[in-house]
């Protein structure tokens, strides 16, 4: 256990001047646009610093790969539901900064709910702490949620404390044909319900008896190894109640929708819609307050 290098070294490397971009596993490197070529590339410290199973928290360098984190927690029967597509390469800091939640968001909530404390390097090159290392905390403003999905444009994550979860005793993926909303309504807290316009994939997790009972509620569904391959072109964010209409207007198989969540995975690239003007203005003011010179991750845009 321990960090690959001190946080202060990372802060010094980032410094207080000039364009800087942070690199993780480059698994979602193009989200938000290409990084300006003149940006200096830096990488966050890696390593699991401290894991307290009874506190359900883990402190980890932002440069740690998700696979490494998962392995460190496995001995205690715990995990963090980050669920990136490529855990061997994706880093904890990268998953948080991009902010894309995994396929089990339906049960475990969005990825932003896992971040309890962040130590990040500010645009002035200072180490800043946001949040706290405990599972419940309302001491001051919630900078942590602001940092998740910010693409490193407000600060560069160096070390984080995450909320961990117990690994469920049993899990089962099932596939069948049914109205996805009916499937969702029939189950109690499934971990994932996916729909491609034709088939529905369901992940149920928990106590073996409950998993068997839930599976039994889905007539005509058969057990499968896992979800279908995820279309990796782009993601759309749709109100969950609009998914059915959305899917019925498209050809089956051209998308994979997370039922009950509203995330739609597509083969094509997606340009996110622009927020309404008052919200866009507020986004710009937030960016200006944290990184007035836009020195962090120039070229990548959140809004």
């Amino acid at each position: 256990m321990g960090l690959s290098r001190p946080l202060a070294d990372f802060a010094a490397e980032v410094g207080a001047e000039g364009p800087v971009a942070v690199v993780g596993g480059r698994t979602q490197w193009d989200v938000g646009g290409p990084v300006a070529p003149d940006a200096r590339l830096v990488s966050a410290p890696a390593g699991v610093v401290d894991h307290q199973p009874a506190d359900m928290t883990v402190r980890v360098g932002a440069g740690t790969t998700v696979a490494e984190l998962t392995e460190a927690l496995a001995a205690a029967g715990q995990f963090v539901p980050l669920d990136p597509a490529q855990p061997g390469r994706a880093t904890v800091g990268g998953v948080l900064s991009v902010g894309h939640s995994g396929l089990r968001r339906l049960r475990y909530g969005p990825v932003r709910d896992t971040l309890l404390e962040a130590r990040y390097v500010s645009a002035a090159g200072r180490l800043v702490k946001a949040g706290g290392p405990v599972v419940k905390n309302v001491s001051g403003f919630d900078l942590c949620r602001l940092l998740v999905g910010a693409l490193g444009t407000l600060g560069l994550l160096a070390e984080v404390v995450l909320r961990v979860q117990p690994v469920p005793a049993a899990r089962r993926w099932l596939r069948g044909r049914a109205d996805p909303d009916v499937v969702l309504a029939r189950l109690y807290r499934p971990s994932s319900v996916l729909w491609d316009g034709d088939s529905v994939w369901v992940l149920v997790e928990g106590h073996p008896a409950d998993v068997a009972e839930l599976a039994g509620r889905l007539a005509g569904f058969a057990e499968v190894d896992g979800p279908p391959p995820l279309p990796a072109g782009g993601r759309l964010s749709v109100a969950p109640t609009d998914l059915n209409r959305f899917g019925n207007e498209r050809q089956a198989g051209t998308f994979l929708a997370e039922v009950g969540v509203g995330t739609v995975h597509l083969h094509d690239k997606v340009t996110p819609p622009s927020p309404e003007p008052s919200v866009l203005d507020l986004n710009h003011r937030v960016r200006a307050a944290f990184d007035p010179d836009h020195r962090f991750n120039p070229g990548r845009r959140v809004a």
């Binding site: 902010g99 894309h100 939640s101 968001r105 969005p110 932003r112 309302v138 403003f141 919630d142 900078l143 942590c144 949620r145 602001l146 998740v148 999905g149 910010a150 407000l154 993601r235 964010s237 749709v238 109100a239 969950p240 109640t241 997370e258 969540v261 509203g262 995330t263 996110p272 819609p273 622009s274 927020p275 309404e276 008052s278 919200v279 866009l280 507020l282 986004n283 937030v286 960016r287 959140v302 809004a303």
Partner: peptide
């Protein structure tokens, strides 16, 4: 309602509205 008198809707009915999580920043402020 913001201090300049404008009204802004932070967050949304969809899971990942474009932009920073201003909803998250506002809750608990």
């Amino acid at each position: 309602v913001l201090s300049d008198g404008s009204v802004a809707r932070l967050g949304g009915t969809d899971p990942d509205p474009t932009g920073y999580d201003l909803r998250g920043a506002f809750v608990g402020s």
